[in-house]
């Protein structure tokens, strides 16, 4: 296979507990640590391993984001991606829009495989991989925890509610990475230096002919209802008593 495309979304770091803005317009992102979506690191790691096994020639990282997403693409290049594409937007896009963009890039690049994250940890939508597969008319293997490429097909193990499902798909295909697919490598300093020289192309969103408005309107954003304050019990006896009183044991 020649080419693997990997989605790299810039998201709030997973350790950050976001705060909703008091006016209900969204979450406060000023000064908040941003990172590569953790599932995208896993997707990229898998693509790199496929390439390192000699089963792919090139790994291309794609992000749809503002100029700042170049930071995350540089991280992807430092991890080992060969080149990167930033599709420049001014505002966050709906997964359907992201899917249309990624499908367009997959077609232009003639990709043999697209690996995305199972979900972005900001919108928690878990939509993009199946949407790209649908728009591209290709197979999908979501929640992948094991991938084996056999020439023109792949065998993928998926984490489903009932256990582990294995499917076979023809390539090109779209996969989404689950947590247990692999453990992403750490980026080393020399790799960061090398990454600065790797190509990062910026494509204007408007040049792709994709409409940004899919009609879904955010009415407002609010914090979750807080839980009532609990108590600390002094010992097991008090705990069991309390649970008995509530009829829970």
């Amino acid at each position: 296979m020649r080419k693997i495309l990997v989605g790299v979304k810039r998201v709030v770091d997973y350790n950050v507990r976001v705060r909703v803005k008091p006016d209900g317009s969204g979450v406060a992102l000023e000064g908040v640590k941003m990172s590569v979506n953790p599932f995208d690191e896993i997707a990229l790691e898998e693509a790199l391993r496929i390439k390192e096994r000699g089963e792919a020639a090139e790994v291309v990282a794609v992000s749809i984001g503002t100029d700042e997403a170049q930071q995350q693409l540089r991280t992807a290049l430092a991890m080992g991606a060969d080149r990167a594409i930033l599709v420049k937007v001014t505002e966050a896009v709906d997964p359907l829009v992201a899917s249309r963009v990624l499908t367009e890039i997959a077609k232009r690049e003639n990709a043999d495989l697209v690996i995305l994250g199972k979900q972005a940890i900001d919108d928690d939508a878990a939509q993009t991989a199946p949407m790209v597969a649908a728009l591209w008319g290709r197979p999908q293997a979501t929640f992948a925890s094991k991938i084996a490429i056999n020439g023109g097909t792949a065998i993928v193990t998926r984490e489903v509610d009932a256990g582990l499902e294995t499917i076979e798909v023809d390539l090109p295909a779209v996969f989404s990475a689950d947590l247990r697919l692999n453990e992403p490598r750490y980026v080393k300093l020399p790799d960061i230096m090398k990454a600065k020289k790797k190509p990062l192309d910026v494509v204007e969103f408007a040049s792709l002919g994709v409409t940004a408005d899919v009609g879904l309107k955010t009415v407002f954003v609010e914090p979750p209802k807080p839980r009532a304050k609990g108590i600390v019990v002094k010992d097991v006896a008090e705990l069991v008593d309390a649970l008995k009183k509530k009829g829970l044991v």
């Binding site: 709030v12 507990r17 976001v18 909703v20 969204g26 979450v27 940890i121 900001d122 919108d123 928690d124 879904l216 309107k217 955010t218 009415v219 407002f220 954003v221 609010e222 914090p223 979750p224």
Partner: peptide, 10 residues
């Protein structure tokens, strides 16, 4: 969204 820390009305 955000692991349940922001509830969005759509």
């Amino acid at each position: 969204t955000y692991a349940g820390n922001a509830i969005v009305t759509l």
